[in-house]
Amino acid sequence: MIKVNVDGRAIEVGEGQSLLAVCLQQGIFIPHLCFLEGMPESPASCRLCFVDIQGEPAPVASCKVPPWDGMVVRTDTERVRRLQKSALRLLLSVHHVDCRNCPSNKKCVLQDLAKFLGVPLKSKKLEHLQREIGVELDHPLFQFVPERCVLCEKCIAVCRQHNDFSLLTFAKRGFNTVVTCFEKDPDRLPCSDCRACVEICPVSAIFLKNEAAEACLDQPPPFPDSP
């Protein structure tokens, strides 16, 4: 067994898991968004799961670090929290914050993180930015709400797991990256009863269209913010 010390607590762990996974199992919360239990590789893209490891010059993403014997970890140092708050503020600055009309209200990962880190959902520090979508989102089966999407990649990962290849994809690049599906012919999509992407989405950014009504999507969300 590998012995690791996290925030002064000694824990024993087996091999083959990341530090983040181990901590979460032991009930030590580290903010995270793109990490998906059971997936072979974490994309390490959300940049939330930073921890300080003794001997490392800067905070590291715990989803990419295998625990080693004698590792000494702190999850709540000032610089770790600074980066986590900064990352969350950035994510919120492009998120359409309209919780009352969002199906994820009260079970939303962003709300949880904001509470944990003490970051207001509508930060005054950064302006709100809107993406240029520029990609055909109109789709017979899917309803995408890119203004909510945090690009955690979970929907793409579970789709790949269920279908061997992914019907969902990132399109475009950089700031304008969106999740979309290119195949427009419903007959060629094996989507009828697989709702994996819908269920995994932590922010209600993707629906199957026939379920859109119950998801309060009769009208596309107003943008920019209505008061």
Binding site: F165, S166, L167, L168, T169, F170, F182, E183
Partner: peptide, 8 residues
């Protein structure tokens, strides 16, 4: 591969 992947 899926056409989405090509498009992506």
């Amino acid at each position: 591969i899926s056409s989405s992947e090509v498009y992506g």
